[in-house]
Write a protein that binds this DNA or RNA. Structure first.
Length: 584
RNA sequence: GCGCCGGUGGUCUAGUGGCAGGACCUGAGCCUUCCAAGCUCAUGGCCCGGGUUCAAAUCCCGGCCGGCGCACCA
């Protein structure tokens, strides 16, 4: 007969469509792959989760939040490596139609090791030269075109195509490119952190599984800039936090399992190599739990070495379990100084911090100040090269200047230069500090996947008085609607009072929905299904005793509260300062 | 991007060449003094384009979209 949805994903996707959590975009035009719209409930939930994230990672850590554009000019992505590294070279077998990564084919079957960095014509030549074949069907691939597929959405900035731009494939670059200015706001002091919540875009070949893999998504990222020598996290704050870890060694073992430990132990025994990564895993464990992620369906998994991104030296993912599958919901990467070094090299600005020494250092330095009126006529066009050689030599080998003449090798020929023409001297120099490129530790959260996880982990089915019930056990602080206000029945007096209460609660800043349709049970179930934690019902007694019934979603228990205490009590319930069970 | 399967009111679905049906939801009304009750009525649908046919939701082709597998996911 009917195909009842069998797993939570199917039920949840149906609920999400029906009740306004999320749905595929542009349905009126047939839909478009990989794009989703958050409906009224979903947008509110997502907003609440973003607020909670901001509260913890920006405000709570004392970092600064910025909001950068989603489109950036091409040079930014040349520097970041996304223009090259975000490409896939695809080759499609003419026989069986299967697509394969051309660079992987080359790397697996030839002595070339970094085929990804080779230009396409060269890869095509290699494919032909080595007579590489399709891994699926064995057909020859010589002469087949290798096609470039870049995961970035390309566009043009301004009229014409003179200035190409790209939708950012991660929010992080928006922070990195502004580092020279941001460091000024941080008063040139390390460490400092910059956060951003925003959209990123990847033109995925194959978007899948509802909002798990989309082409436009929201990231919440923190880039923490550190002095590689000095800055250490306060691990004591998270040392006792219990975590489930899935280290690389366990993943590679035949009977590998997850490890139950604490952050303190895992850092001490080296399971987590970097203390900053350890710190953020601890912070994040607690934060995820606070917004409703089920800790029994949550773990941190270390990246295998081959899986790490081009910049990362160590990387852990936060993963949540959904219908038996583990999905990545955050990444914690030590990016080293990769990004800032790249931008330093590609741009005209300094992506460094001047680090003052505790005491200025006095060093002896050997320098040359060559007599160009001699070197010029003597060496002509090679004079500049000779100067360079002399400068090198002064730093490397002072003794070379002890005699009457200095020997310099220039393109195989040895020349003698009189010492008195070199301007050689050894001076004392005071150095106050040095310019260092900060290291970056990056916790990066997928907000859409968090929404999905929170909904999944909140999904409940039970029975109330013999009737099936579906409800979302969302944390009151993130639930899109906090309280429903109802008149017990259709009645002008009850409706008037209920509307007055709803208005009062809204004035308190609570998210309120008013409903007077059908019977009371139906209205309770309606709110259960979208996860509204509390309902307030005005009955005939309320008109006399100035009290109402407050009903809790999870237990369906009811308590009687004076109307004038409602705003304060409900606000406390939302903030978690008060438990429903503790009410009179 | 390849392969398999699929796409029917808001949601879930029946219908395999001949008037598009049901359930739930939603709205109106009745009833109802706290958990999807009942009664009456109402709104609302064949993914898009082409082809075959007297006739297409149904068959064929293409596209779009979805699920799964492969590939991809720096």
């Amino acid at each position: 007969m009917s195909d009842e949805p069998t797993n939570t994903s199917e039920k949840l996707v149906e609920l999400a469509k029906r009740r306004g959590y999320f749905f595929q975009s542009a349905g009126a035009y047939g839909g478009v792959g990989g794009f989703y719209t958050f409906g009224p409930q979903g947008a509110a939930l997502k907003g609440n989760l973003e607020d909670a994230w901001r509260e913890r990672y920006a405000v709570g850590e004392g970092h600064m939040e910025i909001d950068a554009p989603t489109i950036m000019p091409e040079p930014v992505f040349e520097a970041s490596g996304h223009l090259e590294g975000f490409d896939d070279m695809l080759i499609e077998c003419p026989e069986c139609g299967q697509s394969h990564r051309a660079d992987h084919l080359v790397e697996d079957n030839t002595e070339y090791e970094d085929a990804e960095s080779l230009p396409i014509p060269e890869v095509e030549e290699i494919v032909a030269e080595y007579e590489l074949v399709c891994p699926s069907c064995g057909a020859g691939l010589a002469g087949v075109a290798v096609e470039n597929f870049n995961l970035m959405f390309a566009t043009n900035i301004g009229p014409g195509d003179s200035q190409p731009g790209y939708m950012r494939p991660e929010t992080a670059q928006g922070i990195f490119v502004e580092f020279p200015r941001l460091k000024e706001y941080a008063r040139n002091q390390l460490p400092f952190g910059v956060t951003q919540i925003g959209r990123a875009y990847r033109n995925e070949i194959s978007p899948r599984r509802s909002i798990i893999r989309t082409r436009e998504f929201t990231q919440a990222e923190l880039e923490l800039f550190l002095d590689p020598q000095e800055d250490e996290p306060d691990l004591s704050a998270v040392a006792d936090v219990a975590v489930t870890l899935y280290p690389a060694t366990e993943q590679q073992a035949d009977d590998g399992t997850t490890v139950e430990t604490t952050i303190g132990e895992a850092v001490d025994d080296g399971t987590i190599a970097d203390p900053w990564i350890g710190y953020f895993l601890g912070v994040s464990q607690e934060w995820y739990e606070s917004v409703g992620v089920d800790v029994d369906r949550f773990r941190f998994r270390q990246h295998l070495s081959g899986e790490r991104a081009h910049y990362a030296s160590d990387c852990w993912d936060a993963e949540s379990e959904i219908d038996g599958n583990w999905i990545e919901i955050a990444g914690f990467a030590h990016r080293g100084n990769y990004d800032l070094s790249k931008h330093q090299a590609h741009s005209d600005e300094r992506f460094t911090i001047f680090k003052q020494y505790d005491e200025p250092k006095t060093v002896e330095r050997a320098t040359v100040d060559p007599d160009m009126s001699y070197l010029g006529p003597e060496f002509g066009g090679d004079a500049a090269a000779v100067v360079e050689k002399l400068e090198e030599l002064a730093e490397r080998d002072r003794a070379a200047f002890d005699g009457d003449a200095v020997e310099v090798d220039l393109e195989g020929e040895t020349h003698e230069i009189p010492v008195e023409r070199c301007g050689f001297s050894v001076d004392e120099e005071t150095i106050a500090g040095e310019h260092i490129v900060p290291n970056v530790v990056e916790p990066s959260f997928g907000v859409d996947r968090l929404v999905y996880t929170v909904l999944h982990h909140a999904y409940r089915e039970d029975e109330v008085d013999g009737e099936e019930r579906t409800y979302l056990e969302l944390d009151p602080e993130v639930a899109p609607t906090f309280v429903g206000v109802f008149p017990l029945q259709s009645d002008d007096d009850l409706e008037r009072e209920a509307r007055a209460i709803a208005a009062e609660l809204r004035a308190e800043g609570l998210s309120v929905t008013y409903d007077d349709s059908g019977n009371i049970g139906r209205r309770y179930r309606r709110q259960d299904e979208v996860g509204t934690p509390f309902c307030v019902t005005v009955d005939y007694e309320s008109l006399d005793d100035e009290a109402v019934t407050v009903r809790e979603r999870d237990s369906t228990a009811q308590k009687r509260l004076p109307i004038d205490e409602l705003p304060e009590t409900l606000a406390a319930l939302r903030a978690g300062d008060l438990a429903f069970d503790d009410l009179e």
